[in-house]
Amino acid sequence: MSEERQHAEQEERMSTVASEETNGKGEGLLERIAYRIVNTHFIRSMYRTPWPTDRRSRLMVVLESMVLHLHPTKLPRHAVRVCYTWCLGGLSFYLFLVLTVTGILLMFYYRPTVEHAYWDMKDMMNVTPFGRVLRNMHRWAAHAMLIAVWLHMLRVFLTGAYKPPREFNWVVGVTLLVLTMLLSFTGYLLTWDQLALWAVTVGTNMARATPFLGHEGPFGPQLHMTPYNDVRFALLGGSIVGENALLRFYVWHCLGFPFIVAWLMAIHFWRVRKDGGISTPL
């Protein structure tokens, strides 16, 4: 690209909105203020494209923006039919965002230690400003997300949207489902009450029976697996659900799994587009 061309594009990008029909004449006060703001250098510098005036330039705005490019530039009409997808994937993602925001807020008051965890949770419910609302948002959104994810899978199955070329995205989706359940399971322990403790005791006892890697599983004893070196030990950081297990589940819940989920979701959404968008009703 020549230097003059680059310069011209820069000029075009910085050109004001009021070029053709929208030159601000005879508009209301609010419109004129809006144009004044939109036409500032700062706002124009946020976009890599000139003000959209036709079909192509509107597409370019979406393509050339980091945030907007996550959306498709255009949608087939059937894709916005609510009764086809029920927006279940979108709802799952929305609930994930709710969980991220409320979860980060909960972290400001919660200490994952045997001494503090339960009482921090009780304080959250009783004395922290809006703590009860935020904790319950987190809890209900977690339940809702699991339901939404399951129903999303059901919808994809019933509409045959797992068929080639979308079979890899089905696999990514199933992985996301498992991770959603793991997020649920790890979050369950953090209240550190009797229900949480015994639920996770029973849940992680299942890991004892893992083939090869569990000390009570097939071929486990032959591989010298004991309660102190098997996969359950690595999950809990000990042989019982205690201090180490609480901290481990906390880190997995707040950092480990959300990172993996966010990464896989990016791939999942991208593949939906690349594999031809939302499947077409027959």
Binding site: N229, F233, A234, G237, G238, S239, I240, G242, E243, N244
Partner: peptide, 12 residues
Amino acid sequence: FFFPNVLFEPSP
């Protein structure tokens, strides 16, 4: 790293 050498749990 996930297999601690020292445990602070009741002795078996």
